[in-house]
Amino acid sequence: MNYTFHFADVWAARQELADGAWLTVQLSAVSMVLSLTIAVFGALARTSGPKWLRMIVASYVEFIRNTPFLVQVFVIFFGLPGMGLRLDANTGALIAMVLNGSAYTIEIVRAGIEAVNHGQIEAALALGLHRLQVFFKIVLPQALRAVFAPLGSQFILLMLNSSIVSVISADELTAAAQDIQSRTFRSFETYIVTIVIYLILSISFSAVFALLNRLFFPKLERS
């Protein structure tokens, strides 16, 4: 192998990479929060809504989970404008990530809801709580505690998937890397640096999730 590495061009473009990484963090964080919010209501509809609503949510979840994210991005970004809905790249990316993320998150939250002991619900109802109160005050906190770990891994996958929105040239990290490599022809160096940034991002996100887990759900005292 007679190849000399040149990282100088990549170093010169560090500001672009930093901006891209920042947008990746923003896109990911916003879509995590929105996905979780949608998922709470989706999972509520999926477990205790009327039958037609349950069917709709279930088909949505199945369809999203059994098709590639890339194709979903294409449908949203190239397909919707034909129906009169024009989106800029970053908005399109965010919509795609939220639609994708909430399908997976609904499934996880639903599993958590189903794991809550039925006695808890009966006790709360017997105490005179309204059904929605029971859901938001009794069931949901226990469900989220139970599924916090898989939720965290799912959100990290969502962050990694955000690299795919570079195909519609949203200005995130991968798109920045592609710009740099097409300008400098240092593809290998650029992608090595980019992949290391992603690794740092995913390790940081899992550290943040571990912290949040401790903050929101301190260890229960067992008697």
Binding site: L160, S163, I164, Y191, T194, I195, Y198, L199
Partner: peptide
């Protein structure tokens, strides 16, 4: 598992 498949 900690980096995007696309970059790999």
């Amino acid at each position: 598992q900690g980096t995007p498949l696309l970059l790999q």
